[in-house]
């Protein structure tokens, strides 16, 4: 048995020796069990240098889930259909010059905004709102504090025109300073409309359904509509300025 094994080994050695060196063998397709993975060892250099290769920079970028530092910083969220109400706080030269003239004329009108809708009102007007105002009862006194126009016979103080919303910023609506005027409205009552009857019909049916509805509306009466004089307005501004100063000190 041992002898047989030795002869077999010898035979193997002989066959290996008899083969010519590999470089002289005819060119043939290699059939190997070795896998051709994309290791740097067996991938040619030009392929590594090509655009297909994923650089370490790109890997970092995709891993970090944020954009490159050169990209503009993400802004604070504001949707294009958002709305920003801007109430002016400063006294402008035109207010300083023309408010005395506006104030000197007797009766005034204002464009007052309730829930963003404008109502042109003067003192003593009765306003039937197109909705039922919640949580108010007849006799309650409301202060209206959003106005865009204050006018008299010859002069009008206007707030700037509203700016339309774009992709970068929402709509901006400008209002006059609420310390320029005092408007009080009393809730007078609740108005109702006549009963509405809507006929609902279906095809090929003799039956007609009637739907009844009756809307209710709050009625306001403007009891006070006053424009402050320049002196009063400046005093208010000064008082608030002092108050703010104290607040910051304390």
């Amino acid at each position: 048995m041992a002898l047989l094994a030795r002869t077999a080994r010898k035979a193997l050695l002989e066959t290996r020796a008899s083969l010519p060196p590999t470089c002289l063998l005819p060119l043939r397709a290699h059939i190997t069990t070795q896998s051709h993975t994309l290791e740097t060892g067996n991938v040619p250099d030009p392929l590594i240098q090509s655009g297909q290769r994923v650089s370490s920079d790109l890997k970092d970028k995709t891993a970090s889930r944020t954009l490159s530092p050169r990209a503009p910083t993400p802004s604070t969220p504001s949707s294009p259909n958002a709305r920003l109400d801007v109430v002016s706080k400063q006294i402008t030269p035109s207010i300083r010059n023309l408010l005395p003239l506006l104030h000197s004329q007797p009766s005034h009108y204002m464009t007052l905004h309730i829930h963003g809708r404008p109502y042109l009102l003067t003192r003593g007007d009765t306003l039937r709102l197109p909705f039922l105002m919640p949580h108010v009862k007849p006799g309650d006194v409301l202060r209206l504090n959003r106005a865009t126009h204050i006018g008299s016979r010859d002069y009008t103080l206007k707030a700037p025109e509203p700016i339309k919303g774009t992709a970068d910023h929402g709509k901006k609506v400008f209002y006059l300073d609420e310390r320029l005027f005092t408007v009080r409205a009393r809730v007078v009552g609740i108005d109702t409309e006549p009963m509405r009857v809507e006929e609902k019909t279906k095809r090929r049916q003799r039956h007609t359904k009637h739907v009844y509805s009756k809307m209710r509306f709050t009625v306001l009466k403007i009891s006070e509509l006053e424009v402050k004089s320049l002196q009063e307005y400046e005093e208010v501004l000064k008082g608030e300025g002092e108050g703010e100063g104290q607040a910051t000190e304390a």
């Binding site: 954009l67 990209a71 503009p72 993400p74 802004s75 604070t76 969220p77 504001s78 949707s79 259909n81 958002a82 709305r83 109400d85 007052l112 905004h113 309730i114 829930h115 963003g116 949580h135 108010v136 309650d140 006194v141 409301l142 202060r143 209206l144 504090n145 959003r146 992709a167 970068d168 929402g170 609506v173 009080r184 409205a185």
Partner: peptide, 26 residues
């Protein structure tokens, strides 16, 4: 647009809503 924070639907609705323009004095 890339923004820092996502707004909830409730916040978006609040941003669309105009100021009431009144308050109950008495």
């Amino acid at each position: 647009k890339e923004v820092k924070r996502a707004l909830t639907p409730a916040e978006q609705k609040a941003a669309r809503r105009p100021a009431p323009g009144y308050y109950v004095e008495s």
